[in-house]
Structures are given as C-alpha cells and as structure tokens.
C-alpha cells in the first residue's frame, strides 16, 4: 500500500499539469476509478487536514482593492505621460509632412525637378514649369512680402525670390469679385511673410503657394487655405532668418520686358 501511494502522487500531479502523457494506458481504469473515489472522500475525510489550507489559499489569492487603486493610478500616470509624448512628437512634426497631408496640396519638392529646384539669380524673364510658379531661377530682387497686398499682377521673377525667403504667395483669378478678394486680403494684411496678387490665366479662383508646395481651390473660404498658410509660412524659407522687406513694391511684369515670363507646361 505504500508503493501505490508514492506512485499516485507523481501521477496525479503530472496528469493535472500536462494532461496525461503515457500514463492513461497503464492506469486508465485505476485512475478513472480512483479519482472520483478519491475526490469524494477527499472532501470529507481530508476536511480536517485541509481546511486550514483552503483559507490560506483565499488569503493568498490577492487583495484586489489596493491593486485596483494602484492600477488606476498607473493607468492615469501612463495616460498623462502618453499624452505628453504624443504632444511633443506631434508638435515637432516636420512642416513638410503636415502640409503634404492636406488633400489637394501638390508637393513639388518631392518631384526633384531641377528647373523648380533652381535657386540661381538670373536677369530677364524666366520660364517656369508651373503656373503660378513654385520655384526656379529668379530675379535678384524679391517682391516685398511683409503682408503686401498688390492689386495688379506682379512679376514671377520677383515673386519666386520671395518664395525662397519663406513667403506664402496668394494668387487669385483676375476679375474675382471684390468681396471674395477681401476675404483673401484678411489672410494677408499685417501678416509678415505673406503677399497676394491677381494672376493672369489662373485655372482656379485661388492658388496659394510657397517654395515647392501649391494648393488650388475655387472657394476663397476653403479652410485648407488657412491650414496651408499655417503649416508653411516662414518655415518654408530656403534661407532662414532673411526678411521679407526691402524688395520690389511695384506691380506689373519684370521691368519693360512686356512678358510675365510664364510658360504653361502643365
């Protein structure tokens, strides 16, 4: 009787742990017959010996109150820190990523077009890939872009130089109703690194551009215009720290060339 005892002890432990490996064939009838039999008396016969054990188990089964409180505290702390990390990461996101995410914005910087990327100063009228231009060789004198509102078209060659300085250039279709022009004017007046002018042959009512990025819309109240300005103004400068003043303040084509220098390839 002493031999089956030690035999059963490991067998019962193993069965409960690894759900029976090679044991069932040898003691399938024995264990199946003994287990119900063993459990029946175990509850009664072993009651005296085991009762102290069960309360110990209950007491050892965690006091959930403090754990729940600690858990909530940790969750709140992690949430606050998580928000801080999120805000820090979000706040320092690159402006180019932000503006690229605005639906309808064309990212010309990504295209690596040598003609658009050209930052050289050249005399005379220049040809541009896009209309209005978003970059390229330009005149040595920029257009004044300290919130300047021009009521007639300005020379692309001056305007592109302003884009290089970080200006947002708002252009609108010539002949746009005065009340709509006034809406755009409200986005420029008093805002350094912005300027606006009518644009001949514009395919939409409004085109807003910085160096390498452009957004066109027919609606002057389109909130994406403000989003575009917010994400690009000043930060789009290729020469950080340069001012938007001291430039040309007159309208009309470059000098007396008689051409606005634009070639519409697109």
């Amino acid at each position: 009787m002493s031999t089956p005892g030690p035999e059963r002890v490991p067998s019962s432990v193993k069965v409960s742990k690894t759900s029976g490996q090679g044991k069932p064939p040898s003691s399938s009838s024995g264990s199946s017959g003994k287990k119900p039999g063993a459990k029946g008396p175990a509850g009664k016969g072993g009651g005296k010996g085991r009762k102290p054990v069960t309360p110990v188990k209950v007491a050892g089964g965690r006091n959930w109150g403090p754990i729940a409180v600690a858990g909530v505290v940790v969750l709140v702390a992690v949430g606050i820190i998580g928000y801080g990390v999120f805000a820090a990461v979000q706040g320092s996101r690159d402006w180019q990523d932000k503006v690229s995410e605005i639906a309808g914005v064309v990212n010309y910087r990504k295209q690596n077009n040598a003609q658009i990327n050209d930052t050289s100063h050249k005399q005379g009228t220049q040809q541009y890939v896009t209309s209005p231009p978003v970059g390229g060789a330009h005149n040595a004198t920029p257009q004044n872009c300290s919130g300047d509102v021009y009521d007639a078209p300005i020379a692309n060659e001056h305007a592109v130089h302003s884009l290089e300085h970080g200006a947002v250039w708002i252009t609108y279709k010539q002949g746009l109703a005065a009340d709509q022009v006034n809406v755009l004017k409200g986005k420029v007046e008093g805002q350094d690194y912005t300027m606006m002018s009518p644009y001949a042959g514009l395919d939409k009512n409004v085109s807003v551009q910085v160096w390498g990025f452009q957004y066109k819309t027919d609606d002057v109240n389109d909130p994406k215009i403000d989003e575009f300005i917010k994400d690009t103004r000043l930060v789009s400068a290729l020469e950080p720290g340069i001012s938007c003043s001291g430039g040309n303040t007159t309208t009309g084509p470059l000098q007396a060339a008689g051409s606005d220098g634009t070639v519409m390839n697109k």
């Binding site: 009787m1 089956p4 005892g5 030690p6 059963r8 002890v9 019962s12 432990v13 409960s16 003994k34 039999g37 063993a38 459990k39 008396p41 175990a42 016969g45 072993g46 010996g49 085991r50 054990v53 188990k57």
Partner: peptide, 16 residues
Amino acid sequence: MTVSTDPGAAADAAAP
C-alpha cells in the same frame, strides 16, 4: 480504499 485514497487525497492537497 480509505488507505489508498488518503495518500491520494494528501497528494491532491499537496499538488496545488
């Protein structure tokens, strides 16, 4: 049975 179950029961109690 009683003798054989006792070690078994003891084992059951010890197992957990």
